[in-house]
């Protein structure tokens, strides 16, 4: 087990370093000059522009040797300094993100967990029952094939506008202010529901298909055939198959995290939900590079954290890894 965790942590550490490096590298080596872009918005004469350019280059430390810039970047990062947002000047990027983060957690954690549980349940049912299979599987395939934002658009249009039963923009009604009141809570819940539902449905489809296929595969496994040969009731055989299919599904959950996060970003854009996705879109449209970098880092950290939690769950559930027999889950 220590070996398993050591290996995982190595991968996460490498991933983090790589991600931070990319985060640092891309603005510096992409064609185009962020400072020039920034200055292009204030029209000044060329001489003044040159002076300002030099000034900003100095302020941002861009006149230092590259390796110093790189180390400085890490230094500031480790102190939790991600720079100042340009478009919400002079709010620090960390603060801007901290304001958006709760909405993401509110949206993503229930969507991921519920779609996983429900998907596994229905997938297992579908593997058992041909009639249900003919209903669940096509629907599940349909949901996984849908782009997140399109499902979000459809839900917003139909439930929000055609039927008019749910709000489709913002995190709470404009007339309200955040408070610990029932009215505010209800408004929060109403606004949360549609973004949640679109994330849930797409995730549900993928998980249900995965579980169904895994169970069918497990039912062909030697141990399942042996149990059947000993006259075990179908219920018992399926219970064993379900237990074994759970493990790859847990790994699958970790692998799907990146996709769900991407889905959350665009879903937030559709519903103007004030999470990191909306923030990112605003940052991109306003070329707020520090904010883009900051959002990127938070997404990376979130996904790594999610992976780590999944790893722990895996070890708890898999006797093989727990007893240190193998280092590499499927």
């Amino acid at each position: 087990m220590p070996r398993y965790f050591a290996r995982k942590l190595l991968i996460y550490a490498l991933t983090f370093v790589l991600a931070v490096t990319i985060d640092w590298l891309i603005p510096r080596f992409m064609p185009g000059d962020p400072i020039a872009n920034m200055l292009a918005r204030v029209s000044v004469n060329t001489n003044a522009a040159q002076v300002m350019h030099d000034y900003y280059a100095h302020v941002f430390g861009l006149d230092l040797p590259l390796w110093r810039q790189y180390l400085n970047f890490w230094g500031r990062l480790l102190q939790g300094d991600l720079g100042i947002s340009l478009y919400l000047f002079p709010t620090p990027v960390t603060q801007v993100i901290a304001r958006a983060l709760p909405y993401d957690i509110l949206l993503l954690v229930p969507a991921i967990l519920l779609s996983w549980f429900a998907g596994n349940r229905f997938g297992a049912l579908a593997a058992r029952n041909r009639w249900l299979d003919n209903v669940v599987s096509p629907v599940a395939y349909l949901f996984t094939a849908m782009p997140y934002m399109w499902l979000a658009i459809l839900l917003a249009w139909y439930l929000g506008l055609v039927l008019g039963i749910l709000p489709i923009a913002g995190a709470y009604a404009f007339s309200l202010h955040p408070a610990w009141s029932a009215a505010f809570g209800l408004s929060l819940l109403q606004h949360w529901f549609l973004p949640f539902l679109s994330l849930f449905l797409v995730g549900f489809g993928g998980q249900a298909i995965g579980m169904r296929n895994l169970i069918i595969y497990e039912l062909e496994a030697d141990y399942a055939r042996y149990l059947e040969a000993l006259g075990a009731p179908q219920r018992l055989v399926r219970k064993h198959a379900f237990g074994n299919a759970m493990l790859p599904q847990i790994t699958g959950l970790a692998l799907a995290l990146g996709v769900v996060v991407a889905g959350a970003l665009v879903t937030e854009v559709v519903f103007s939900y004030p999470g990191i996705g909306s923030l990112l879109l605003a940052a991109i449209q306003r070329q707020d590079y520090f904010l883009i970098q900051g959002c990127f880092l938070f997404i990376i950290i979130g996904v790594l954290l999610g992976n780590f939690i999944v790893d722990i769950a895996y070890v708890v559930l898999d006797p093989r890894t727990r007893r240190g027999m193998t280092g590499e889950p499927a």
């Binding site: 991968i11 990146g258 996060v261 991109i284 883009i292």
Partner: peptide, 22 residues
């Protein structure tokens, strides 16, 4: 290890940051 690293990185975020600067 390389595969796992790229697998863990939310590639969408990388695409996003790369595209944002172009």
């Amino acid at each position: 290890v390389l595969t796992n690293v790229v697998l863990v990185i939310p590639t969408f975020a990388v695409l996003l940051i790369a595209a944002a600067y172009l």
